[in-house]
Simulated assay, not measured.
Amino acid sequence: MARPSLNDLTAFVAVATHRNFRRAADEIGTAPSTLSHAMRALEERMGVRLLNRTTRSVSPTEAGYRLLGRLQPALASLDEALDSVAGFRGKVAGTVRINAPRLVAGLLVRTALPRMAELHPDVTVDIVVDGRLIDIVSGGFDAGVRPFGSVPKDMITVLLARPLTFICVASPAYLDRFGEPGTPEELLRHHCIGHRMPSGKLYRWEFERAGQELALEANGTIVLDDEELMVEAAIGGLGVAYVANWAVEAALSEGSLRKILTAWVPAPEEVAVYYPGHRAVPPALRAFLDIVKELRKKGP
């Protein structure tokens, strides 16, 4: 059997990952019909069917899934090997486009971007703030940043240095007036600042203590879709807010907010930069990922 070319194998990974010839063709810069013919030629050369095709969909066969599982880490390792000599070419330049929710974008601005500016002044970091979980490939992004549990399974991830934890906070003035709730259920008798998600649904407040999990629809007369506004509303004494720990660090240290229900804080969740493993990693993105890894080693 003639050994398939690296281009053919990379094309197969793109098709098997996207399950769509048009999107895969857009990614690798060819026509869908050309890509379809290339996949048939690959199957004939290997003597095994790799893809199930219908008029509306394409998906890997059992053999295709097995090949995909082996190729993805192999191609990622090859990219890393090639990138390891990037420093010998001189300075890194270019643009890295990142999709991230506002809260994480703020953390990157405070931590990773100053280091990028110091080490790679010729790299432009273009961050698009978006609360929705989108297809970063079709959206033209090099990488996305999301809680680890919501990252698509076919992506490669690099964890950020700091995990995310959601906590309840309120201003001292509000607590003096209305009292401090001792259990999550008591929130139902308080003024709570609702959180509307990008989908339009109201976020349910989640709590955990000694393995016991609880979720409440603790919404009051104010509903907001921006975490910074929720913090401002809580500081203003308008109610109890349920927000990420990153968003309230300054307010807690200044004393303008107090943490409540501390025994019911859910387990921290890792946050990750993620990117496709079936395409070459651009030098600008590789430089950004290296800084994320460096910051994680240093710790929070």
Rank of each mutant, 00 (worst) to 15 (best):
R70I: 07
G239S: 09
S199C: 11
N52L: 13
G29Q: 06
Q72H: 05
K298T: 14
A24R: 09
W264N: 03
D122E: 15
A251S: 13
T54P: 01
T95E: 05
V231Q: 07
P152H: 09
P4L: 05
R296L: 02
A170G: 13
P184S: 07
A241Q: 03
A241H: 02
N7D: 12
G69M: 08
G211K: 09
R40L: 14
V243Q: 13
G47E: 09
E270P: 01
V243F: 06
I28N: 02
G255V: 12
F12H: 02
P101G: 07
P152L: 11
T124Q: 01
R70Y: 07
A41K: 11
P300L: 12
A263S: 11
M197T: 05
V158I: 15
T10N: 05
L107R: 05
L42W: 10
V137L: 04
V15S: 03
G200F: 15
T165G: 09
G87V: 15
A244M: 12
M155P: 00
A31N: 08
I28K: 03
V271R: 02
T61F: 10
A117H: 10
D225T: 01
P266D: 10
N52A: 07
S59W: 08
D126C: 10
R209W: 03
N219W: 10
A86E: 12
L113P: 09
T17Q: 01
F166P: 00
R97V: 03
L68S: 14
G106P: 01
S171A: 11
L9T: 10
A170R: 04
E270R: 14
R49P: 07
K293H: 11
L67I: 13
H278R: 13
F207Y: 05
L160G: 13
V48R: 14
Y174I: 06
S57F: 09
Y274V: 13
P276F: 02
W205D: 06
R162T: 15
V58R: 10
R66G: 01
P73Q: 04
E270Q: 11
L164Y: 01
W246K: 12
L229S: 05
P147L: 04
P172E: 08
N99D: 04
E118A: 12
S150L: 13
L216Q: 00
L295R: 12
W246I: 15
T30L: 01
F207R: 02
P184T: 13
A250P: 04
I98N: 01
R102G: 08
L35V: 09
V231N: 04
N52S: 10
S36E: 05
A100D: 09
L202E: 02
P282M: 09
V92N: 00
R196G: 05
L175F: 10
V15F: 03
A41Q: 10
